[in-house]
Each structure stands twice: as C-alpha cells, then as structure tokens.
Simulated scan of single mutants.
Amino acid sequence: MKRLLILLAMVVCANAGAQKFEGLGATPQMGWNSWNTFACNINEQLIRDTADAMVKLGLKDAGYEYVNIDDCWHGTRDKDGVIRPNAERFPSGIKALADYVHSKGLKLGIYSDVGATTCGGHPGSRGHEYQDAITYASWGIDYVKYDWCDSKGLSAVGAYTTMRDAIRSAGRPMMFSMCEWGESKPWEWAVDVGHSWRTTGDIYPCWDCEFNHGSWSQFGVLRILDKQAGLRKFAGPGHWNDMDMLEVGNGMSEDEDRAHFAIWAMMASPLIMGNDLRSMPEATRRILVNKDAIAISQDKLGVQAWKYMDGAKLEYWAKPLAGGDWAVMVLNRGEQAATVSYDWKKHVIGDDLSKREADFKKIVYNWTEIWSGKSGDTSKKLESKLAPHSVLLLRLKVRG
C-alpha cells in the first residue's frame, strides 16, 4: 500500500500537460455494457458468460471488443481510500476477471462517476481520481465510463480533465468514455479529453418516446437522433458523439432494431450492445453481426452522416466513406408504410464538411441494400416499399 501511495504522489506531481491516450478510438468503439438489461443485478459470472458469448456467437469476430461493467460493481474503500469490488458479487476480484476477459481476446471496461457517489449510490471517484486510475490500471482495465451523477457544484471541464489526466498518469492505455449527458456541450471542449462523449440523456428501448422520471428523462431512438443536429462537425477519429448504448434486442420490433442499428452506424456513434447476449434470438444476432452495417460504422474516414433531404414521408441521410464510397439511409419515421421512388439523377449529394460530392448525372454508382442484399445502380430510380419504423441502408460504389 505504501508503494501505491508513493506512486500516487509522484504521478500527481509529474502530470503537467497530460493528454488522453492517442491511438484509441480511431473508429467508434464496439462492445457490450451491463446497464441496459441488468442495471445493478451484476456479478462476475455474468461478465464471464458474456465474454464467452461474444466469442461463441461471432460478436468478437464482428469487431466487438469491450466487455464493460457498469454501475454497482463497487464495494467500499479500504482505510487508505483504495476502492474494492463488492466481495459477494465479484469474489475473485476484478484483476482475475480482467485476466479471464483478456484470455478470450477481449478487453474489460469499468464504470465510475465524477461525484462522491455514482448514480446507483456507490463510491464515486471525486477526490480519488488518481488513486482509482492507478487501481484500474493495476487490475488491467481497458475502458473507463465516467458518469455525471452527484455533480452539483462541479465543473464538467475540470472533473473530466482531472480523470483524463489521472488515467494518463496511471500509464495504462484506457478508452475514456465521458457520460456527461451533453449538459455542458462537451463536443465543444472535450476533443483532447475523451474518446467519446454522450450527447444526450439515457436511451430507452422505444422508437419515438420520452420516459419521464421527474427530474430526468430517457429518450427513444428518434428523439436521440433528432438531438444530434449540428453536432457532426465535432466527431471524428478518436473523438465521437455518443448516442448511448444500443437497445437492439431489448423489446422493440425487428424493423425498429434494424433501423436503430443502422442509425447508430450512419452517425458513427459507438456500438455498445446492451442486451443479454446469452439468450438473444438469432434474428437479433444477425443484426448485431451484420458485417456491411458494421463496415459503415467503422469506416476509417470517420465522417458522421447528415440528413440531406426530407421527403413527404421519408428522410434521406448520407455518409461519405473511404475510397469514394457512400452510405445512404432512407428512414421511414412514420406509422404507415411509404413508397420510395427516388430519382438519383435529380439530386447531387454534396458535403461541405468532407468536401465530397456524388453527382449521379456524371457518375453511376452500384448500390447494395445492407439488410436485404438487393442491388441496383443509380442509373435507374430507387423503387421500394418501406415499412413503418424501418430503413433502407445502401452502400454505393462507383461502377468500375
């Protein structure tokens, strides 16, 4: 313990000019988090089983790498202030759990909070930031989700920068996921602080709703999408707008799940699964491992989509991709089926942010619809019937 305290003093003194770890989050992070399904009902066996499922079900091969423990893993702090896990829920300790997850070729994430207490009422990191970061590093943690509960009187810039510096000083590269809910507009100041920042309050597994808890609310898929207006210029490799964890497999319809996943992929939001991987149906797994949808999310150009056209009943979104490709999403927000009849030649897609343009009068693109596998090209109208609460997700490639 004395060695830990000496190290803590040394890193605090040597910390001037610390930065977040570079080289992490070159594309939006992919993984799983315990909160959406399990909340505080977590233990080490669940985390082990989830890691096993990620490997067995092809999720690891699809690109998911983080297994993240959310709130309620905490026990108490010892006499020196060092945080310990709940001994009943995590009897083997977090280090042993990290070793197990690493043995599967995956990475382990953990949760804390800027306040003295977490959202679940457990010990937060306020006043213990450097101590906690050293502890996490000693356990082999790879990802830190840092919440904003019990934050009255705190500066978000100060609180998150302090933990960033603490993580950097601990010496182990850890993804830093800022869960500040967008209250202080972190996209304007956190590019050098976090690898991602939440842009809204928590998600709720519904298409278009607000679940009001009195002092705070959860939002459905469309409500969160609408709150992203004006934010795309702040996202890019190493610093992503986080629309919260995925609710795929948590009670919405299959069409809604596909649309939800497509929206998150188009918007370059982290893909953090929030369902029970151990018992999900095959239809849910197919959505989560769709390699072509994931490729849109993980495109190395790192440009977030934008809505370039509102139709009578449909929205048209575009995302420039590396190598001259484009992704186009047609979104039916409504309650009735809608007819898609889109003449590519009547529209030029131009993006001032990426300085990219698709002029379909000059260039013909071949397209593939990601979910159905149907294909065509932009020399002909795009004709389809689109169910309510669903999307067409197209990848366009210049005809060779």
Rank of each mutant, 00 (worst) to 15 (best):
A16D: 12
L57N: 08
K380R: 05
F38D: 03
W181E: 12
L386K: 15
W344Y: 11
A18R: 12
V157W: 09
A26I: 05
M175C: 03
Q304Y: 01
W181A: 11
F90W: 04
M54C: 06
D70Q: 07
V157C: 02
R278A: 05
Q298S: 06
N366D: 15
E256A: 09
K362N: 08
K319R: 03
D113S: 15
I6P: 01
G373Y: 06
S196N: 13
F21M: 05
G238C: 07
Q45Y: 05
D299H: 03
G182W: 11
W207V: 04
G127N: 14
N43H: 03
Y308D: 00
V330P: 08
R84C: 13
V328G: 10
S103H: 01
E188S: 05
T135W: 11
I296E: 02
S384H: 11
M245R: 06
A26E: 07
W264G: 00
M329E: 02
H195E: 11
S379E: 10
V328M: 15
K107C: 06
K152G: 12
T76P: 01
G214Y: 13
T161C: 04
I167Y: 09
N241P: 01
H74V: 11
E129H: 14
T200Y: 14
A96R: 06
A387S: 11
A156I: 04
A159P: 08
G17F: 15
R48N: 00
Y316G: 03
Q218R: 03
L288F: 06
D299S: 06
D242Q: 00
L7W: 05
M309S: 09
I134H: 02
K380H: 03
Y64W: 12
N241Y: 01
G140R: 05
K20Q: 10
R168M: 10
S196F: 01
A262N: 01
I272Q: 05
M273Q: 06
A229C: 02
G302K: 04
G323Q: 00
P85S: 13
D257L: 00
D80L: 12
Q45G: 07
